[in-house]
Structures are given as C-alpha cells and as structure tokens.
Computed example of a mutant assay.
Amino acid sequence: MNFNFLTPVPDSVITHTNLLAPQVLGKKISIHSAQNGIPDLTGVELAIIGVLENRNAAQYIGETVHLNEVRKALYGLFPGNWHTRIADLGDIEAGESVTDTYYALKTAVSLLIPKGIIPIIIGGSQDLTYPIYRAYDALMPMVNIANIDSKFDLGDSTQAMKNTSFVGNIILDEPYNLFNYATIGYQTYFNAQEEIDLMDKLHFESYRLGAVTNNMTLVEPALRDANIVTVDLGCIKGSEVSLNQQESPNGFDGKEICTITRYAGISNKVSSFGIFEYKPSSEDHLTTGLIAQMVWYFIEGVNSRVKDDDFTSAHTYQKFITLVEHQELVFYKSIKTGRWWIEIPFSDEVNNKLKRHTLLPCTHQDYEDACNNNVPERWYKAFQKNCV
C-alpha cells in the first residue's frame, strides 16, 4: 500500500517514548518514523492517523494543528490484555488546498478498510468526516454514521463546506450512500428548531444529552449499527478539558465519553473511528489525556468484540415474535452476548442497497415495548427509510 503522503511521527515524540517504561503502549505499537519508514502492516488491525487540517472550521483564525502531546499521552498508557496489532502511520499534513487533504484522507481510509484495518483518525475540524464517508463509496452500498456531538452540523449545504455544515453535504452530494445518521448527545439550545425538525423528517436518530447520561446503554444499538463513528470534542463538558478546548458548561464527562467510545469499539460494524476539533495548547494535559483514554477505550472495545450477529445457526440465538398494531415484529437475541436485534421488512420494489439493513440492533426494552403494543422508535424510523 502506498502511503507516501503520510509524514512520520516526530522524533521528539519517539525520544520521549524511549524514556518510558518498557510495557507502555508506545513501545508495543509499530510507529512510522523518519528512521524506519512506514511499518509493515501485515497482521495490523488498528492504524492511527493524524490529520493536521482545520481550515474549514467556521471559527478558523490561522492556528495550526499538531498531535505531539496527544501521542505522548497515548503512548504513555499501558495496554490491556489485547490481541490486536496496532500501528501509528503518522500524519496527513494540510495540503495545498483543503481538497488535497480530503483526497489524502479518503485514499488512506479506502486502502486500510479492505485490508481489515480500522483507521483511528485524530484531527482538526470535523468536516474531515466527509472524506472518510466518501472513502466508502467503492466499499459498501450504504453507510451508517454515528456522531457524538452537541450539534447536528446539518448547516447550509449550498455554501462552502464547513465543520458546522458537512452533514448537509453528505446528505445531498452524489452518490447517495447515507442510510442512517445518528447524533448522540445533542443539546437543544445549540440547534435551530428547523434542524431538529429536519432530522425527524429524514428519519435520522437523535439522542439528547440528558437522555443519554441518564441511561448510557440507550445509544449502544446506534453505535452497534454504525460503520463510521466520529466524536466532536465540543460535546465534552468544559470542566473536563483545558481552557483552550472548553465550549460549554454542559456535556459528557470523561467517564461517559469513554463508555461511548468503548461501545463503538465493541461494535462489529464500526470500521473507522475519528476524534475531531482538537485545539492544541502547550498547557493542555487534560484534553490530551482524555483523547488518549478515549482511544484506549475504543481499542479495548475492539479487543472485546464477539461475533454474535450471525443468525444462520438456531443454536446461537433465540427468536421472539410479537404483534403490534397488526404488524408482526420479529426479534432475535444472541445467546452469546444477550444483545438484541429486530427484523426490518422490505419491499421487493425497494432499492436493493437497503436489503443489508434488514436486521437492526435494538435493546431488550424495545422488545418489552413491543410486547406492550408500542412500536420501537428505531424500528419505525428504519422502516420508514426502507419504504422511501
């Protein structure tokens, strides 16, 4: 694989790592260095890529992005009892234009995923989600995105793309490959009512911050169903990050965001993961430490994956059938993990692209709601999209 557009991890980071204990993560992973070049990716399952691009941030004022302190924090953590091989491929520098950076990121993701390697992307502005999404054009017919964010980022897609409007471009730009978009942790006062109404009209999912923090398991099915998971660091409570990174007094705390990233790692479908809107600061130990721990928990989740969504053998699952408003709902429960799915019927006239979405992750509560004659909301939204 040709990754000549990637720059190596700075020598200062590698020198710092050499002074750490021999068991730390930085000494267990393969690192792209100036001395040794890009590491052999044979057997690698996770690849870290930095993207030093933030020029499409709505609030861009000429600052640059670097990830040296993030890497030092991550490399200094001790790995769990992991079986996956990890590589750090270095950075994609800001190109001559933002489009050049997008192309490099799209190329990197499209090369890694077919090899069974999950890219972990850490970068500047969140519009970088767009080239990640476009990398899937040749990989799969339909894509699900879960975005942990206080805002929907729908914006005005008729204007130049920004980190506040990239989702509008994803929805409207051809080819149309987006099946579901879920926003986790949105805060109502940061979103126009028109955007909230549009999310509902498009049958996309949205989970308010308060609902999620009251019950973290609420969002596990949406993350289990996602191909791409991205985190906007603006969703973090201001007291949890450094002064330069603070955006709101309300948001997820460190434990909650790490729970979410672990859910993302456990998902068998998630094949790319990104953390964006990092604003470097020389005194920023809180933010870099939190990013490192978010990545750690994602890797921990990947190492805890269980193949429990193959329902070809009757010995691996239980099947439950309920009747709700004259509609037969079919549920499946994995015997291995206890996780639940619900079947989404589709019409023969519907675009074949959607047939792969006939099994939808859900919760035990959804089954109980169906038994009480209440249609699960996730099922209803997916069913409506299948009927379009």
Rank of each mutant, 00 (worst) to 15 (best):
T42W: 00
N215Q: 13
S242R: 02
K381G: 01
I291K: 03
N250V: 14
G338F: 03
Q245H: 07
G90P: 02
A314S: 15
L74S: 04
E349P: 00
V65Y: 01
G254I: 09
L25R: 07
P114T: 12
N250G: 11
E256N: 08
L20K: 13
R85G: 10
S313E: 14
K279R: 13
I118H: 05
L105W: 05
L105H: 03
I132L: 02
M140D: 01
I145R: 04
K269E: 14
E63V: 06
T164R: 06
A87T: 10
E205H: 10
H326L: 11
T64I: 07
G301F: 01
P10E: 12
L52N: 14
K115G: 07
I132Q: 12
D310A: 05
F166E: 07
D369L: 13
A182R: 02
L329W: 03
V219E: 04
S267Y: 05
R378Q: 03
E325D: 14
L233S: 08
N227A: 06
E220R: 12
V13I: 13
F179S: 07
L67S: 08
Q318P: 00
T17D: 08
T316Q: 08
H357I: 00
V219Q: 02
H364A: 14
N214H: 06
Q293H: 12
W82Y: 07
K336C: 01
Q245M: 15
N373D: 15
T164G: 12
E220P: 00
F152Q: 06
F166V: 06
V350N: 04
Y278M: 09
K269L: 09
G37P: 02
V350G: 08
F311N: 05
L46Y: 02
I266P: 00
L41K: 08
Y189R: 14
M294F: 00
E256T: 14
P221E: 11
I92W: 03
K307H: 11
S313N: 15
L209T: 11
L19Y: 10
I257K: 01
S150L: 11
K72Q: 14
Q187G: 04
L329S: 07
M161D: 09
G76H: 11
K162M: 13
A57F: 00
M140W: 00
L329V: 03
Q159P: 00
F78H: 11
V109S: 05
E300L: 05
H315T: 15
Y207K: 04
G116E: 13
P280A: 08
V375S: 01
K162R: 14
Q318E: 15
V295T: 11
L52M: 09
F273C: 06
D40R: 04
V270E: 05
G238L: 10
R339C: 04
E300T: 13
I184N: 04
G185A: 08
P361T: 04
H326R: 12
K336F: 12
A94G: 03
S206T: 08
M161Q: 09
Q126M: 03
E69L: 13
F166P: 01
L323F: 02
Q126G: 12
A87G: 10
W296K: 13
S12R: 12
L89T: 08
I117P: 06
T312D: 14
S248P: 04
L67N: 06
G254N: 14
A34C: 02
N244K: 13
G234N: 09
D173Y: 01
D366H: 02
T129D: 09
V212Q: 04
E256L: 02
T158A: 10
I61S: 12
I49D: 01
D88G: 10
T213S: 06
